[in-house]
Amino acid sequence: MALYRIADINVEYEPRFDMLRERSKKYLIGPSDKVNFKISIKNDDPSKPGDNNSGLSDAECEYIAVGSSFYKGLISFNGLLLHASAVAYENEAYLFSAPCGTGKSTHTSIWQKHFGKDKAVIINDDKPAIRLVNGIPYVYGTPFSGQFDISENISVKLKAITFLHRSDINTIKPMDGSKAIYSFLNQTIKPSEPELKLKAYKTLDTILNSVPVFEMGCNMDEEAAEVAYKAMKEGICNED
């Protein structure tokens, strides 16, 4: 079995296909007596997504299945997945979440264009892990980052979260508390097990009490990065 250290958690699994093996490589660690949890990959897993979706290859199914097992396991370690593109800038992490196709990745690529690729680093382009370290939320790269393998094995302190929607002009404002909860829950996995569920809500409570949440209408102009940064870094919004 291979051992990986993802989001500072020692996870054991044995990839059968190159896709998962290659993308997990950066996280490989030597043998350790400490295994936090194991993910078993079954040949004939009846729950594999491929059964319902003939468009996916076995390798993609394995990648997705191990990813969702990881994110479910993460909850026990005071962590949560947020479906988002995460960018690190000045040693702080900025998360942009939205439903598929809204332009999360496009927005963080605008940050790279605006602030420079060497300064604005994508931590994970689609599924960053948020984990509480001594009660403080950090954002981690993982091997699971959506269609393109854009992720770094780094952890950066979370600065703020913004939920995006498309708009002709760039507007940003603080998001109301209950709307933030609802938006976050819509972009994460919700376990059905009672203990995990309570744990997930506790982690969410800490995250939302630690960092500000915004909602932003954004276009694809470079100005979008500046508008988002001003609000998330300095609290200056252009809308109430």
Partner: peptide
């Protein structure tokens, strides 16, 4: 379950 300023009803 308390999350930020809201009390949420959850099925446990």
């Amino acid at each position: 379950c308390k999350v930020k300023d809201s009390s949420i009803v959850i099925a446990v």
